[in-house]
Amino acid sequence: MGGRLPFDNRVRELREQHGAMTQSDLGKAIGVTRQTVAAIEQGRYSPSLESAFRIARVFGVGLEEVFGWTG
């Protein structure tokens, strides 16, 4: 059932910078549930490339500003 993901993310930080956007709001914006946003933030789920791009677009930043490779 896997281990930790080889990348981290700044989704929570970016949410807080965007008017304290809730996980639920972000989930609705990108078409996933609140629980999936929580799982992404906690590194328990690797989002699809499409969702990763959608997250970046919601925050108006590039993909690498949201996700960073930690190897």
Binding site: M1, G2, G3, R44, Y45, S46
Partner: peptide, 9 residues
């Protein structure tokens, strides 16, 4: 249930 709790990679 386990994958919901522990995560799916």
């Amino acid at each position: 249930i386990a994958l919901h709790r522990r995560g799916v990679y």
